[in-house]
Nucleic acid binder design. Structure first.
Lengths: 402, 402
DNA sequence: CGCATATTGTTGCATCGTGGGACAATTCGC
DNA sequence: GCGAATTGTCCCACGATGCAACAATATGCG
């Protein structure tokens, strides 16, 4: 039951019904491919006549295509339908503190080629480097299809509508327009998003997520993307999901944000490192060690697996703190699923007990404690898949109505 | 940008476009009444012809009505349109621990008559008493219109779809069906909801709320209703918004829920009382004092206003804790507005500085600290208005599409 | 093979929606 | 009294759904 916003509503025009139904068909094909027209008609509970019309329009538009004939126990064999993905290409870019990743993928997020380079902090230089890589990738592997756009994941706070990076401590940027220069340099449309939301979009459009979930990213900091009813919750100032800066302990450890006792200060990669090195290492110093790759969480996990008791202890401590924070998220939002991304997820078998124990202790109701918590490995490149999803999602999203 | 749920979608039928546009017209009239057909056409950017059709259908259906002629600088005088509310009546019921409130109101939430009685904890007796009051109110004041339904606000966790009270510590109920017996006893449709969500609905449909906000109720406990994009966020187990049981301090004060250090344990009415009486009063005892009306927060506020320094100190302490918790909510959701309901809101002038100070300290970005925090007086009967909104809202809500 | 049966996909028509312009009714200014 | 502006209604072209009939195709069985 949704209230209509009388200052910003969408009237139904003559073609609205058709658009809605066409989009539903497209999504049904996406989820159930291969699927026949008749099967679609059964699932949608409408006549095959209308489905044929809608399907033919989608084929015309290049959204879906007909494949081989399918099997049937009796009667005419169905012609199976697929979403067209293999020859629709996407450039996905993930800018991180140390390195920038540029991937060429198809519309389903399948990797075709991947390049990386050292991130440069000057806007012009960064855009130039990205554009050069894009052109090279397109020249080398772009023959198999059309490039539909660029999805760009930036660290920090971004304004999706203007394409500006509003604030990025990692890059030292304030209100920098990166979308338009990149679009101009490449001639491709660019969508920009921050990392947690991109990861959430990847799960929603290319993964296994339901329509109401939360994606927690654990890296230098801790970010949370909130998805309600299939929509990302952005908040009034594009700054929802800052669970990382909710205070876990009054007068606790100093956080990179300057406040004391933030959740992030106990469970980020920086914090994990601090757990290992001992608390006399201040967070900024631990951050520098991490960034200069003198030590990494991945290495810590290696050490823990090969018998380093202190490393294991540090990870388990992070797990405990992670569980405490997750119980906050669960209490606040009661999502259907929680995804956890970041290096720490590859130590999930080592820390899960500790995570779970804290969740059980911190959550109000037993059913909520049983919310599925799903680790996602960094090796799956969730950020890059998210960048790809940025380009694909608008094609499949529901039309805005009423 | 919303993802379509392929397991639960709504096809556009032949009449969908009309329904969408009719509902938009209804809401425009609701917000801008009195308004003419021509003005509607301008706001909607469509021809007056279509608006006339839609308006006439709505008049036929009894949703809106024509009033007197309006003014215009030139040309034919417009016939003004109004939402029909005065002769559409609603029964609003608010069941609280000590007393139950039964109100007869019109569709706009305007009170026509109000009765109260001591809450009885036996389901049958409670339903009987409620039904008797409803019948009496309808006999006495119901001549002016048709009763469209009953909105019932229950303390604790409710399942809106089944009409069951799943868990109510205040009443000592577990999984009790209260909706169907009341519907049968009165012959009226009954909608059931918990208190925070009802208050949020009242603000959204009868008040000044935007489409993305949060309603914090402070009473025996602390509850938060979350509204995103004009929709209430219920969560997987109908238990979202339990910010009250996020831990503020490890090993802190015992909460009524049994855990230690919950926000609720520091800012509920029970907590405020504890601040006044001194912390050696355990929460259950403070709760009993409150419930037996040996002392109330309203009285505490009176004392503070008449020079009782300890009372003022207790309130300010509650304000500080309230601010801490609100900063959590702001960090987590970045809503456009926050409403605060409960007895404490009538001491807002006394505590606002303390609230604001904590919000400033606890929130990550300055803009977020400037989120409007709006106290709502209990004298406005937000729960009862919410109960009324329960009946009215489905009439005005957007049709579910795609 | 010949035929009944079942299934898929297409076509046609009735009905109901928007889109847009012409038209009558009404009021004000000159 | 007349022109101009404004409101509300009417009408018709076109687009979308809803439904049923129809053609195409495959299987099973005598």
């Amino acid at each position: 039951m949704r209230k209509i916003d009388v200052r910003d509503f969408n009237l139904a025009t003559r073609t609205t019904s058709r658009e809605i139904n066409r989009r539903i068909v497209l999504n049904l094909v996406r989820e159930h491919q291969p699927i026949s027209r008749a099967e679609l008609a059964r699932r949608m509970d409408v006549g095959r006549g209308k489905v044929s019309l809608l399907v033919n329009e989608l084929i015309e538009a290049g959204e879906i295509l007909e494949g081989e004939f399918g099997e049937s126990t009796r009667g005419r064999k169905p012609k199976m339908l697929y979403v067209r993905t293999h020859d629709r290409l996407v450039i996905a870019i993930d800018v991180r503190f140390s390195r920038t990743y540029v991937m060429l993928s198809d519309f389903a997020g399948h990797q075709i080629a991947l390049e990386t380079f050292d991130t440069v902090f000057d806007v012009g230089a960064l855009v130039g480097e990205m554009a050069a890589r894009v052109k090279r990738l397109v020249r080398a592997h772009g023959a198999s299809g059309r490039i539909e756009g660029i999805g760009l994941v930036m660290p920090g706070m971004v304004d999706r509508s203007t394409g500006h990076v509003i604030h990025s401590p990692q890059l030292g940027w304030h209100d920098v327009n990166v979308r338009d220069p990149l679009a101009e340099a490449t001639g491709l449309p660019v969508s920009i998003e921050n990392a947690p939301i991109a990861c959430a979009l990847a799960q929603m459009w290319l993964g296994e997520a339901s329509n109401d979930f939360v994606y927690v990213t654990v890296s230098d900091g801790v970010g949370v993307a909130i998805v309600v009813d299939g929509q990302v919750v952005r908040g009034r100032n594009d700054s929802s999901g800052e669970f990382g800066h909710i205070r876990l302990r009054p007068g606790g450890t100093e956080c990179l944000c300057g406040k004391l006792g933030c959740w992030e200060a106990y469970t980020s990669n920086v914090a994990t490192l601090s757990h290992y090195l001992g608390y006399d290492v201040p967070p900024r110093e631990a951050l520098h060690l991490l960034r200069e790759q003198r030590i990494s969480v991945a290495e810590l996990i290696d050490r823990a697996r090969t018998g380093d008791a202190r490393a294991l202890e540090a990870l388990k401590r992070t797990g405990t703190e992670l569980g405490t924070g997750l119980s906050m998220v669960l209490n606040a939002l009661n999502p259907a699923q929680v995804f956890v991304g970041g290096e720490i997820s590859s130590a999930w078998d080592l820390i899960w007990e500790d995570v779970q124990k804290e969740i059980r202790a911190g959550v109000l109701a037993d059913v909520v404690a049983r919310t599925p918590i799903i680790p996602e490995q960094t090796s799956a490149y969730p950020r890059l898949r998210g960048a790809a999803a940025l380009v694909a999602a608008p094609i499949y999203a529901a039309p805005e109505v009423a």
